[in-house]
Amino acid sequence: MTKAHFDDLKALVVDDNAHMRELLHALLNVLGIREVVEAADGEAGYAALAQYQPDFILTDLAMQPVDGIEFTRRVRLSPDTPNPFVPIIMVSGHTERNRVEAARDAGVTEMLAKPITTQSLFARIAEIVEHPRAFVRCDSYFGPDRRRRHGDSHSGPWLRFDDSAPDVVTI
């Protein structure tokens, strides 16, 4: 349900490192977000999602036994998910292309590379608040629209009605 005031927002922080959880918690408090729930891995995070119904989630990637990618997949696709639309910001030191793509394909809303700065964290939260993303549903995916840019830059495949191949100039 849409909140009338941002200090009514609830956040969930999922990270196996207690220092990082505590720091993120404090940074969210600074913004006026009073209700912040912590979980140490994806399993506990999923339980907290059901119990506390947070409005957005900050999650680490590498955790045991359930990592951030599996957690995100469950949030988006599980039949019993409490909120498949909840924005998920993945905060991770893993910036390798394959891991970023895996996170995107699991349904992450935003990525934030560690080490984080206050500015970068706040900018990602501003993004999910101010520019909510469209969602895509198909057999293998449910999550935010993975196409960030619309227009001339897409080089195919042409899956959408408004997709169009670039003009071909024949010489």
């Binding site: 849409t2 969602f135 198909c138």
Partner: peptide
């Protein structure tokens, strides 16, 4: 979409604020 997928516009998704 032509491939059977569906797009739910942002304004039709639950908003935070």
């Amino acid at each position: 979409l032509p491939n059977g997928a569906a797009i739910i516009a942002a304004e039709n998704c639950p908003a935070l604020l």
